[in-house]
Design a protein around this nucleic acid. Structure first.
Lengths: 340, 340
DNA sequence: TTGTAGGCGTTATCAG
DNA sequence: CTGATAACGCCTACAA
């Protein structure tokens, strides 16, 4: 176990000064061809790599992007991360990922740790608990410290920063209209509780979708689920003896679970009840029947966020603050669950 | 947009020296109660946080763990990460995640970047391409630099380091035996190409499982898939007109796809053909029929890796090198696809 | 009780 | 062409 090699080691070994070594390695023309060669050879031999930490300290930037998401075991978020990483790595940035695990406290702690020197900027989707509490001081603070923050998907309207969002309302409306267009007239909604921003927006889209067809909103056809862990029981109870011919669910788990419950009731999907979900994940693709769903283009969102952040980082003009809100279009992917 | 505050700022503002500030903030008894209070109050007011980068440089440790995995949009790996993160954060460590995207080059680049100061140690599952090439110089090098490396799941036998592995052979054998125990006699295997270590091991387990029941291995019942993107066609072609009554698949995608193909052939799962998969992901849980599968306890693996690494980092005794190979047991989770 | 100096690894500036 | 010095932000042994 040998120590990591530094400029100092090389300098001592070659009996020259540290600064000469530094310059030689950068190929500075100030240094004679001769020493340059010698130093480079030595460095390669000992596999010298400049210490990132020292560079970060010197340059006052870390070339790393911090990403904070509510859940890591989650198809949509990992897809976004994939996009973030791709762009970041291309531009020589590292990506640090932390999950808040939907906990306010963890989100605050992670953010504070990362804000104190570990990263140059944030890409963030807030925790459920944070949305519920409505306490965003940690975000405001990091922004005030001069760190760029990009929020995506689960954003906070009142925060002054860039935002990349999915057009949840339109996506949901589109989904609902699709159900109506294939003949459904009694369309149920399975959604989350209201404080989850995306749940609320998709619920709104559902209502608009119905209105577009002049169908009255029947609150008894709307199920709001708080605890995902018990969604099966909730959905079972909700669908039992219910007279419906279509379901719009705000995520793929609810959609797949609904399909399963219906099967238990010996109803056919899509013939008796058609289903549309949200998020184009593994489940939607490979379930039987495969699920028609609203794709959010997660990778694209990630790429865009990453680009935007790096752009801020590298071309920040003093005195000019400009914040964008970018809306990424959704796409309805039609599959078996609405094929009739 | 104000600058981030440093000890220096506080010192200047209070007209005392930097070291006094530093000591005061640490509550050193060297400093008078009076100044201590004053400094602390000021620091809190301006929300002072010590700069991690400077600390890292000084202490020659970053308190961060680098994780490199082949894919990020992958249920098993994210589950492992969840476990890693949990333990790491509890012990005050950050986690940096990079995906190699199954590319050798990206793995090398990521590893080198992170090894040059950004992290204290690695938790790593090697890329498919790396396994194929058999080139592990980057791993050897980082180990030689004195950085602890823990490999998990897709490990390299000849590497001298700690390894956390799933008992793939036993898991697969168990799965196969389960199929046989419920009456299957013609059990097909859907696996990956051999250079993927886990695929190979699970194939071995399958063979052992058959042998345990004195059933001869019929190579025509084994399908090796190289390109996951086209697995549906492959599996379709493979299963067409094949006389089998059970399938063991080495991942959940292959298992779910097999179920889908069988449905197309109007065969019932589990009555005509029973199926067991590997990995207890969303698909296995929520598919219809739900899939019996071999669970790898990913979270536990992550927690264990994290603990092991941090332990190495904090209690390293000079001159003693000791490497463990830990085998995590699998668990067969029985669901509808073998319920008969 | 407070302050000074040196160092972590690097680079930019300036002097030799 | 080469080297000394200072600085990034922090900590700590030692001096005052």
């Amino acid at each position: 176990m040998k120590q990591k090699i530094t400029l100092k080691h090389i300098a001592k070994e070659l009996e020259i000064s540290v600064s000469t070594v530094s310059k030689a390695l950068k190929g500075s023309k100030e240094i004679s061809e001769d020493t340059r060669q010698k130093v480079k050879a030595f460095a390669k031999l000992y596999n010298y790599k400049p210490n990132n930490i020292a560079l970060s300290l010197k340059n006052r930037k870390t070339k790393t992007i911090a990403v904070i998401i509510p859940e890591i075991v989650h198809h949509f978020f990992t897809t976004v991360i994939g996009g973030i990483e791709k762009v970041a790595n291309e531009k020589g940035y590292q990506v640090i990922i932390c999950s808040s695990n939907n906990s306010f406290d963890k989100e605050v702690i992670n953010m504070e740790m990362l804000a104190s020197g570990s990263a140059d900027g944030f890409i963030l989707s807030v925790a459920k608990e944070t949305q519920q509490k409505g306490d965003y001081h940690h975000i405001t603070e990091t922004i005030n410290q001069g760190m760029p923050v990009i929020m995506f998907d689960r954003v906070v309207d009142e925060m002054v920063c860039d935002k990349i969002i999915v057009d949840d309302v339109r996506g949901a409306q589109h989904a609902t209209n699709h159900l109506l267009s294939i003949g459904c007239r009694k369309v149920a909604l399975i959604t989350t509780v209201d404080y989850v921003s995306v749940g609320k927006l998709r619920t709104l889209g559902y209502k608009r979708g119905l209105s577009a067809y002049d169908i009255e909103i029947d609150e008894s056809l709307i199920l709001k689920i708080e605890d995902v862990a018990h969604c099966h029981e909730k959905i079972h109870a909700f669908l039992k003896d219910k007279d419906i011919d279509g379901i719009f669910a705000v995520n793929e788990l609810f959609a797949a679970t609904a399909a399963r419950v219906l099967k238990g009731f010996h109803k056919s999907v899509p013939d008796d009840v058609a289903i549309v979900g949200f998020t184009d994940g593994i489940l939607s693709k490979h379930c039987i029947p495969s699920l028609t769903t609203v794709s959010q283009h997660g990778k694209q969102m990630g790429e865009y966020s990453s680009k935007l952040l790096i752009n801020k980082l590298e071309n920040h003009e003093e005195g000019i603050e400009e914040y964008k809100t970018v809306i990424i279009d959704t796409e309805l992917i039609e599959r078996e669950s609405t094929a009739r």
